[in-house]
């Protein structure tokens, strides 16, 4: 494992901890899209099915369990916690997940590297992760006064995928036969979706203003 990959995973982990911190500290999930959280849970669920079939490393297993556990606990808080669930902006969180789930499923069936159930579900999770942030970005655009923790959560999520690109470049240069164009294209698209957000995030930071998306 290289430094970029470790930094990427840690950034991903920190982003989730920031979201959990927001929920615990403010007893609110205002500005957080439940649709995006549902999609991430689906992504982790399908991608980590190999927990039962393939052992890679202790680090790998522990991280997978942590990502699964935290994503489902976030959903639990947003749906069922008696205080937190009342702060969910249901009326604003209107993105139709079906419009990204179905195309990703079709794409995974058509374009994959191996015709097996596990591999197709894994490929589906790669495609779905690339676009799972869309409901969150739409909700942010509709949210007035995005709080710091929510802004930082999305910023860390974007940074995580950006760091993965550096990891892929590093692996491409150092490992023979490392050719992962499905993952690369999806990852570049995923990072690209954050470009607009990054622009306004840095603008707000530079001008010492509260973040808001036009």
């Amino acid at each position: 494992m290289n430094i970029f990959r470790l930094a990427a995973d840690m950034t991903h982990l920190i982003s989730i901890l920031v979201l959990l911190l927001k929920i615990h500290a403010t007893r609110s999930c205002r500005g957080i899209s439940l649709k995006t959280q549902d999609l991430y849970a689906l992504v982790f669920l399908f991608r980590y099915l190999d927990l039962f079939t393939r052992y890679i490393s202790l680090y790998n297993t522990v991280m997978k369990l942590v990502f699964l556990g935290t994503s489902f606990s976030i959903i639990y808080f947003m749906r069922f916690h008696r205080v937190v669930r009342n702060t969910y902006d249901k009326e604003q969180d209107t993105f139709r997940s079906i419009f990204i789930v179905v195309p990703c499923a079709v794409l995974a069936l058509l374009i994959n590297q191996e015709r097996s159930v596990l591999e197709i579900l894994w490929t589906f999770s790669i495609y779905l992760e690339a676009v799972a942030i869309l409901p969150q970005l739409v909700l942010l655009q509709r949210t007035q006064n995005i709080d710091n923790l929510t802004g930082n959560y999305v910023f860390l999520l974007g940074t995580y995928r950006g760091l993965y690109i550096l990891n892929w470049i590093y692996r491409y240069l150092t490992e023979p036969h490392y050719r992962q164009w499905i993952v690369w294209l999806s990852g570049v698209l995923q990072t690209g979706l954050y470009v607009d957000f990054f622009y306004y995030y840095f603008l707000a930071w530079r001008n010492n203003q509260k973040l808001s998306l036009p």
């Binding site: 190999d50 890679i56 790998n60 997978k64 490992e175 036969h177 490392y178 050719r179 992962q180």
Partner: peptide, 10 residues
């Protein structure tokens, strides 16, 4: 082997 390589990432 290629599939295994992709699967070692999170």
């Amino acid at each position: 082997e290629q599939a295994v390589r992709a699967h070692d990432e999170l």
